[in-house]
Design a binder for these strands. Sequence first.
DNA 1: CGGATTTTGTGCACGCATTCACAAGCGGCT
DNA 2: AGCCGCTTGTGAATGCGTGCACAAAATCCG
Lengths: 271, 271
Amino acid sequence: MARVQRDGGDDSAPTTELPAVRGQGPPAVNGRANGRGAPIPADKARVIPEAAVARLAVYLRVLSGMAEQGAVTVSSEELATAAGVNSAKLRKDISYIGTYGTRGVGYEVDVLTSEIERVLGLTRQQKVAVVGIGNLGHALANYGGFPGRGFPVEALFDVDPDLIGIPVGGLPVNHIDDIPDICATRAIAIGVIATPPTAAQAVCDRLVEGGVHCVLNFAPVVLGVPEHVEVRKVDLAIELQILSFHVARNAEQRASRRTAAARASSNGEVV
Amino acid sequence: MARVQRDGGDDSAPTTELPAVRGQGPPAVNGRANGRGAPIPADKARVIPEAAVARLAVYLRVLSGMAEQGAVTVSSEELATAAGVNSAKLRKDISYIGTYGTRGVGYEVDVLTSEIERVLGLTRQQKVAVVGIGNLGHALANYGGFPGRGFPVEALFDVDPDLIGIPVGGLPVNHIDDIPDICATRAIAIGVIATPPTAAQAVCDRLVEGGVHCVLNFAPVVLGVPEHVEVRKVDLAIELQILSFHVARNAEQRASRRTAAARASSNGEVV
DNA sequence: CGGATTTTGTGCACGCATTCACAAGCGGCT
DNA sequence: AGCCGCTTGTGAATGCGTGCACAAAATCCG
């Protein structure tokens, strides 16, 4: 079976290759002479752990906040605490994409920002299509965070004939039968599925048909896709269930602490 | 610093304890005699990896779909492919919560369902409050998937005076200043933060003040919380950026394949 | 009743990710 | 110029999660 899906809540095992030139041919000139701040040694480890990619995106957001406040340089320690991680981990994450720091000083905010953007492919805008204009789809279509971060929403789709043609967030809704055509002609890079679970697989197939290689799936189903297509899943119910597990666990712990305390006090012990 | 946050997109390292009795005291009678289908050996490994918890929730959803179609038993293989995972991993995940399978047959759908529900703390309803009734908050308040899965939304909050008192999804919106009181009196278990990033920390502090121990955070900020509070994060922009990384990587791969092919063909080689 | 068949449960090994600890490197100060 | 303090970058170690492969168990059938 060539259908795989990477769970959005499980960024552990598989590593992904860094977008660097691959062939063993002539050492690709990287535009900039290999002085200080090289993209990467060009022959060394060419993989970025998936987990590191997720954190790089977090660093990027923290960095943009720091830049707004006029920061010019950051130490790994500052950036790490702001991002909620260990400083060693942060340095290792950054080392995956190159060496841009200055020892004894830290990182230049703007340099680091643009390098992370480069690796994450944010230098060019990634066009997004949203399928399923229900509650969530409406929210996503109107969500300001997407275009503001280089992800312009350029197409909307739904089955409901009452919605077709109605503009949502300044963009008319198209019928899902037009997904392949419109995605192909508008060069949609990322498809967001916010449909009911029953419709998700069919919608996904049409997106793939339209040349979309990356899918963000909000429907609670496991999507089957060809091997070259990347799926990330966001399942709100599952997030709540994970939290529920922690609620239950904490309740148990408190309960067992109570019984332990009760037993201890009935024995005259001091806790 | 005693403030930690578990990233929703990174469920790898830390393990969490199973909600089992902890003390080394008299072997707790589990209500059911320790015949077939014991919760767990009561002295063996008492931890469920966080990643396994997330998958258990997925199995639960798949199981409920199978139950609707009248299935009585499932093999690990069936369930695994339906959930998009390896069958060995599935069996190991289930073994964390006990031994409920029958060798040569499989698992009873209803037994497995109720046991997973028990471990995930879904036997009792977890009340949810949604803070920030913007686009996303509206969607969450109206989202049918929550109450249908044991997560009734029981309180809504916002700052906007125009929204206070307006019913959204059948529930009136309260002011965020009332978060501590209302959460405490209604015994809210889980708080969902769908506010702008600037307001998120203050809202979170008030939720904690109201006795909420678990938070689902949609705002793109790292929340600081006391140690006993569990935070999960869902950041849509970061999900897109991770996909963007894969778009870029694939583009690079294709480009390098093209150059390789071009080089090969210019050399007269056959690819 | 015994063997064949099926499927669970798990010991074991491998690989990835995280963390530690330190050498290398840079800037500033005397 | 040379030393000192600070911070990066990374080798090495540890721990966790995953997947394999097989023994144990249960059912079915002859």
